[in-house]
Design a protein around this nucleic acid. Structure first.
Lengths: 330, 330
DNA sequence: ACAGACTGGGAAACCGCTTTCCGGGGAGGT
DNA sequence: ACCTCCCCGGAAAGCGGTTTCCCAGTCTGT
């Protein structure tokens, strides 16, 4: 393993000079020495040891992103947006996946703290468990107190810079749109009761339906993934319109109806939430609430990096997108 | 920022003892001192500085994964498999995305070398450009010569441990299956000519078709993504069966036919390659060649970590999966 | 020609941790 | 009782860089 000292020796200069030439410094170095060092580094195949640099400089150029599941297009889009933004800043990215285990999330924050990453991005819904949230907050506080920056995509529950999708409002807006098409009997595939994203969307939807004077929707809980949607779709009763609180669940629901011979949208209308990219080619095209996922990821990075004293909360509105999966029954 | 020294002082022990207690060592430490150190660490909120550990130990517990595009389910599945395997080994993961720029790939290898990651996983097709491949090889060599481990998912072109999907054979097997259903006029949505994965699949398919004595398929080149498939689908002439060299392109092709009123599989049959997970709910269900993506990612990590002297090349067979998107026209 | 301001180069302290090496004290053998 | 061996605690030497500080040499201005 070739070190800076090797380079300096080969070039016949001091360590200090070699460092200044190779790893950017405010100080000038004479042209001839500079050339000698560069040549030596090239000949020897020198690569700076980042660990040493991080230690000496006291700051790394790595940021950490913690997501639930990379194979979920929602998180992939979020992470991709953040990664593009990071690349633009010359930062490297460490990704951790929790597979929805809150303990893992806490563990990752601890690890990234140990890595002294410049910033940590937490993507994904909070769970409604003060116990767990408290532990996460403490771990984050520990990280922030030693200079770390944190941003979060999701509910504003951690006291950090947050990009908060307007889940409640999105659900409500969707409900009004669907009611506008003549639907009156709704069901909600609501995901797990403790998952705040799921609950906010469901609550917003239900509240709007009630506000319109329509019968209260039937709410079916279940896992937040495709199979959860598939299963929950079996219990929607006589609803003419079903709202799955995310697109992945909606896709599962569509599959369930297809398997069962229930036609969408003729027999039942279906809507989701997120507008994930792979939906673009789904049949039938899914009505949903669009969230600018990549932008949200990029924005979260931006918030984390901005050295502001005040914590910012960005609310991101969703846009209802009506497509084939719902029928106008007026 | 609280350091080990702070902990040691607070506990009234030496640096050495504190280190031995907190960061695992073969050496024993007496129960009372151990307890004192642990309490001090907890009170102070100590987190080891990984950069310092990495420097002192001369080895990090981070691995690097370089993929083309995380939002592509193919790479997401690969990365997820590798990440699960890494988590099992107690390793952290740094992910780099190249967005298909070979220069970026080389740059990432250099960066990960600088990070002294334990291993680098290169996922994704090689390009047919000896110039670029040579530079990448040199960069990898530089990394390996200082003790780094490398594995690759794709073509065995880099002289490193490789998990090589049987693209040629998979394409051929698919061709034979489709011919078995009575198809004789084929077209291939072949992706970019210089991308080896695309070319191998296409070549295998074409070779098998010719071997069967059928007319040579029309080959349409284009980008390797959804839109590439969409566009290329416009030039398939009178083929009764179209093979897109990956699933994402096939989905694009299906969309194109749908938009144009061409029915699949009634008017034209379509097949893809990879069997990405989101396909499960596509309509019509896509015929494809299944690759065990998550396993391949995990296997690549395993190869990279195994300290073997010889470089291993694992060939992974694909399995033809016939689904609704192709019609039996016998 | 000379004081004073710059300029670029090198020695050495330091970043936070691991680990070797050394030493003191208790246990075990005779 | 005495000697050896083992066990555990601490001092200190790195790991590979960055950066401060000092110094010699070169420019300026007068």
């Amino acid at each position: 393993m070739v070190t800076l000292e090797d380079v300096a020796r080969q070039a016949g200069v001091s360590l200090a000079t070699a460092s200044r030439v190779l790893n950017g410094s405010t100080r000038q170095v004479g042209a001839d020495l500079r050339a000698r060092v560069e040549r030596a580094a090239d000949e020897l195949g020198y690569r700076a040891n980042m660990a040493a640099q991080t230690l000496a400089r006291g700051a790394s150029n790595v940021i950490g992103i913690v997501v639930h599941d990379l194979t979920d297009p929602y998180f992939a889009a979020l992470a991709d947006g953040a990664m593009r933004a990071a690349a633009g800043e010359g930062l490297l990215v460490m990704v951790g996946t929790t597979h929805r285990d809150p303990e893992q999330e806490i563990a990752y924050v601890a690890t990234m703290n140990a890595q002294r990453v410049r910033a940590v991005l937490l993507a994904g819904s909070r769970v409604d468990d003060p116990q767990v949230t408290g532990r996460l907050r403490r771990e984050l506080e520990r990280y922030r107190s030693s200079g770390g920056r944190v941003a979060c995509v999701g509910q504003d529950l951690l006291g950090v810079d947050t990009v908060a999708p307007a889940n409640h409002e999105g659900g409500a807006a969707l409900a009004r749109s669907l009611a506008g098409l003549g639907h009156t009997r709704f069901a909600v595939l609501a995901g797990p009761p403790h998952l705040m994203t799921a609950r906010d969307r469901c609550d917003g939807f239900v509240a709007a339906v009630k506000e319109l004077g329509l019968p209260e929707p039937r709410v079916v809980h279940g896992p937040f993934d495709r199979d959860g949607g598939y299963t929950a779709a079996g219990e929607t009763g006589d609803a003419t319109c079903v709202f799955a609180v995310n697109d992945v669940m909606a896709v599962g629901a569509l599959a369930a109806y297809r398997d069962r011979g229930t036609r969408v949208p003729d027999d039942v209308s279906v809507a989701g939430f997120d507008d994930i990219a792979t939906l673009r080619d789904h049949v039938p095209a899914l009505t949903t609430v669009r969230l600018p996922l990549a932008d949200m990821g990029a924005r979260a990075l931006e918030l984390a990096l901005a050295a502001g004293e005040t914590t910012t909360v960005d609310h991101v509105a969703g846009e209802v997108v009506l497509r084939e999966s719902v029928r106008d029954i007026r």
